[in-house]
């Protein structure tokens, strides 16, 4: 994994239980060891990151970034427990996968590999995120795009917010 510029990764821990409780325990240990010198925590599961966020105190308020997304994650971003999340739009991706299968069953040609879009969500765009129900029920036309940007699935018919930070990808 390429080391992110400007970041010094001081510790990596495995949440062997995949539980918020274990994340809380790990975050509390980080609080004891690093205190306010720790700038941020990246928890690879938004579900367990809620546990890490519970360790925040007035004296220990690291940036918490996570991966996954969903209603609880958006809620935590809105109220400040999380700083940002990489939202993989699970309901929409599920539908896209089903669409790909149907296309192949119908004999359509599709590229061997395709990228699926994701969003970086923070307080600037969290209010515009479609809910899980909207992602499930929106009348979306999926489209396989093959162009200079690569092979990817486009979601036409659902409004997604601009990527947080304005990055292009």
């Amino acid at each position: 994994m390429r080391r992110p510029l400007g970041l010094d990764v001081v510790e990596t821990q495995a949440n062997s239980e995949l539980s918020p409780q274990k994340s809380a325990e790990i975050a509390e240990q980080l609080r004891t060891r690093y205190g306010d010198e720790l700038d941020g925590i990246y928890d690879a599961l938004s579900y367990t990151a809620l546990g890490a966020a519970s360790a925040k105190t007035p004296d220990f308020a690291p940036v918490i970034v996570t991966y996954g997304g969903g209603a609880e994650t958006n809620e935590a971003i809105a109220d400040g427990r999380f700083t940002a999340a990489i939202d993989v739009l699970n309901p929409l991706i599920g539908r896209a996968k089903a669409w790909v299968v149907c296309q192949r069953l119908a004999g359509e040609e599709l590229p061997g590999t395709m990228e699926v879009p994701f969003l970086i969500v923070d307080e600037s765009n969290v209010a515009e995120m479609p809910t899980d129900a909207e992602q499930l029920k929106a009348d979306v036309d999926f489209e396989a795009l093959v162009d200079a940007d690569g092979n990817r699935i486009a979601y036409n018919g659902i409004t997604l917010p601009e990527l947080a930070g304005g990055a292009a990808k």
Partner: peptide
């Protein structure tokens, strides 16, 4: 106790 500590409650928090 666990829900108050985590400031949230999930249906799987009793696992294990």
């Amino acid at each position: 106790v666990m829900a108050s500590r985590l400031q949230s409650a999930s249906p799987t928090m009793g696992a294990g």
